[in-house]
Amino acid sequence: MTDASKAPLPKARPRPVYRNIGFGDLARYRLPAPGIASILHRVSGVGLFVGMLIVLPLLAMSLKSDAGFEAFRGMVWGNPLGRLILIALLLAVVYHLVAGIRHMIQDANRWLDLATSTRTAWATMLISVVITAIVVARVW
């Protein structure tokens, strides 16, 4: 009879030992993709809520008169800063929507394992950039 307690244990994988981390180690710490997707959902949401301070005056201006509409067009499309802000707002709303759909699918207990969640996080970012690019290309 062999003594089970004397059987050789499977060799343990060497585990990392953390004593103190330096700047070199900091570069290896990354937020995982689902974390990036989550923080972008927050940033885009807060950005849109605050961004209404830009959107509402522009909407008012565009509806006031034909001259107002032309002034609105000049502001949002006639100069690089206006275009940049408009494209950023569009990207924010598209991203927030796509990420919101992913969020609700995860509410239903689907796509929750890390591998799937990572893939859908990257897909969310890619899809929203593509949709935004298509819309911008259409109205450019």
Binding site: S62, L63, D66, F69, E70, W77, V93, V94, L97, G100, I101, M104, I131, I134, V135, R138, V139
Partner: peptide
Amino acid sequence: TGAVVGLYVVVLIGLLLVHGAPNAEQWR
């Protein structure tokens, strides 16, 4: 509310893609 806004945004983007940027008359 997210679904309501989402539907509205999808319709707006659809209109933009079909008709392009509106002029003053179309917008009015």
